[in-house]
């Protein structure tokens, strides 16, 4: 464990909590892509199947349970509790455009052709594109509430910090996880234009982020 990975996990946790609290306190999921949240729940489910078979550390196990619980709670709030506030017509991204390539690639490119490894690879590739429905919704509605942009900022920052973690681990312990690194770089690239908008619009404007 290093400071970059710890900071990354904290940012990830903060992002998930920001979103969950926003939905719970505003009792509404307007402007939130339910599809992205479903994809994140799938990412955690397929990645943490080794929750009961592999023990890394108390921290690792606890964080896996927390991420699973919070992501399912978010999906529950969107599709059950506050479903009448869910505007599905804006959440129109075709998930098959993401799932088909990701499933295909995880069968082609993996470390071992075993169910657990293929599912782990699937979760890595899926995570890199899981935010697309949310970013697509923002471009479609042309705006995002500032809380939603803070959520996206921390979510993008978490994987950027993981890249620093991989650089650190490569130089200190020769660790190099090619699948995770390539996918993590792609994932972070998707956030770059959002980061630019976030800094120029939200942090200065202190209001809604309206796309040009």
């Amino acid at each position: 464990m290093n400071i970059f990975r710890l900071a990354g996990d904290v940012c990830h946790l903060v992002a998930i909590i920001i979103l969950l609290l926003k939905i719970w306190r505003s009792r509404s999921c307007a402007g939130i892509s339910g599809k992205s949240q479903v994809l994140f729940a799938i990412v955690f489910t397929t990645r943490y199947l080794d929750l009961f078979t592999v023990f890394i550390s108390p921290y690792n196990t606890i964080m896996k349970v927390v991420f699973l619980a919070l992501s399912y709670a978010t999906v529950y709030l969107i599709y059950m509790r506050f479903r009448n506030t869910f505007n599905s017509e804006n959440d129109s991204f075709r998930l098959e455009f993401l799932l088909v390539p990701v499933i295909g690639l995880s069968f082609l490119e993996n470390y071992a052709f075993t169910p657990l490894e293929i599912l782990w690879t699937f979760s890595i590739f899926l995570e890199s594109v899981a935010i697309m429905p949310q970013l697509f919704m923002i471009t479609k509605t042309g705006e995002a509430e500032s809380i939603t942009t803070h959520y996206l900022f921390f979510l993008g920052l978490y994987r950027a910090l993981y890249i620093a973690n991989w650089v650190w681990r490569y130089h200190t312990e020769g660790f190099f996880d090619q699948i995770a690194v390539v996918s993590g770089v792609v994932q972070t690239i998707f956030y770059i234009d959002f980061f630019y908008l976030y800094v120029t619009k939200v942090l200065r404007g202190r209001g809604k982020m309206t796309l040009p």
Binding site: R5, V54, I56, F67, Y111, D177
Partner: peptide, 10 residues
């Protein structure tokens, strides 16, 4: 390839 390495990252 590092086969069957336990994935120690979240």
């Amino acid at each position: 390839h590092a086969l069957n390495m336990a994935h120690d990252e979240l």
